[in-house]
Write a protein that binds this DNA or RNA. Sequence first.
DNA 1: GTTGTCGTGTGACCTATATCAAAAAATGAA
DNA 2: TTCATTTTTTGATATAGGTCACACGACAAC
Lengths: 187, 187
Amino acid sequence: MELPKYITNNIKLSPQKEAELYSYFEKLKFKKGEFLYEQGSVCRSIFFIKEGLARAFYYSDSGKEITGWFALENEFITAFDSFYYKTVTNINCELLEDTILYALSTADLELLLEKDHDFAKIAFNILSQITMNIVEFMGTLKFQTAKERYLFLTEKHPQIPQRVTLQHIASYLGITRETLSRLRAEL
Amino acid sequence: MELPKYITNNIKLSPQKEAELYSYFEKLKFKKGEFLYEQGSVCRSIFFIKEGLARAFYYSDSGKEITGWFALENEFITAFDSFYYKTVTNINCELLEDTILYALSTADLELLLEKDHDFAKIAFNILSQITMNIVEFMGTLKFQTAKERYLFLTEKHPQIPQRVTLQHIASYLGITRETLSRLRAEL
DNA sequence: GTTGTCGTGTGACCTATATCAAAAAATGAA
DNA sequence: TTCATTTTTTGATATAGGTCACACGACAAC
C-alpha cells in the first residue's frame, strides 16, 4: 500500500519503518452494498479507501435514512467518536461500489501513537484528514434552498453526483428524492 | 492553566515538561462580542475556553448568519482547515460572553508535534476533542422537524439554550427566530 | 423473451416554515 | 429613572418542499 503524501509529508521514514507502518494496515475487499460498520456496534477501525466509495448515514427518529457524508478514493472514513471512545455508534457506513481499502484498528492506532514519535505524527495527520473530510461535508448545508445545496455539491464534489444514486444525494441534502428529481428537471 | 484530564490521560509528564507544555499556551481575555477569528483571515490558533462561550458561524449566499457550532468551557474551538493548511477561512467565531481562554498557535502546535513524543500524543488528543465537538454538533440536523431538532439540542446541550439568544439557536437549527419563538410557545 | 427489482420522474394536494410587518419585552447605558 | 437598542413574540400571508400514488425505463435473473 501507499499512503498519500499529505499524510507522510515532512516525515522521513526509513524503509524499515515504512514497512512497519504499512504492516499495521490490513487490506480488505468489500462488495457493493456491504457495511464497514453499523449502528449498535463499536466501530473498531479507521478505513482508508484505495478504490471505491462509502457513505456514512444514520436513521432519523421517523426512520428516514440521513446521509452525513461520503468518502472517496484516498480518503479516510470512520465513526470517530465510537472508534476513539470504544462506544456504540449510531452511524452506518455502507459501500456504494465494490471497494478496496486498508483498515487500521483502534488497537493498532494506539500502538502507533505509543511506539514511535514519527508514527504519532502520522496518526495526527490521519486524524486531520478525517476531521477535514467531515468539516468539508458539513459546510453550507443549513438555510439555503435545496437547489443551492445541490449546486454547491455538484460544484464542490462533481464525482459524487456521477457515482451516487439520486436517493442518497437527496438524503445527504436533506430533501426527498421527489424534490431532487423536480429540482434537476428545472436546471 | 490546566488542561482537562481527557487530554493528558495516560500521558505522564514530568513537572518540567508539564510547565513547558503550558508555556506554549497564551492566556487571553475577550469581551462579549469580540471575535476570535473572522472570514477572510487565516485562523492561527486553537483556543481552549476556560470560561465563557463561543459561536462559530458563516454567512449563506443570501447573507444569513448560519451557526455551525458552539464551544463551552473546557472545550476547544478553531477553524481547523484554515489552522492546518494556513488558508483563508470563511468562518467567523464570536464570543457570546466575556471569555477567558488559552490560545495555542499553529507554529507552537507544530513545535509540540516535532519536539517531543509525549507532546505529539497530546496534540493528537486535542485534535480528537476538536473533531468530537464538531461531529457532535453536526449530528441529527437534517430531515427532522424544527421542533425535534430544538428538543434534541435542549436535551443534549441544556446549557446552550440558557446562555445563548434565541436568534443564534435558530440560526444553528436552520430556522428563523420567528419559527423558533412559535415552536417554544407550543411546548 | 418474461418477470422482478430498482432507480427515477410526474401529478395533485397539503403542511411546515419563510417572509413581512409591527408590537411587546428585555437589556443596557446615561 | 428614562431612553435607546436589542431581542422576542404575534399576526397575516406566501411558498418550498413533503407526502402519497403511480408510471416509466433499465437491468438482471430465469
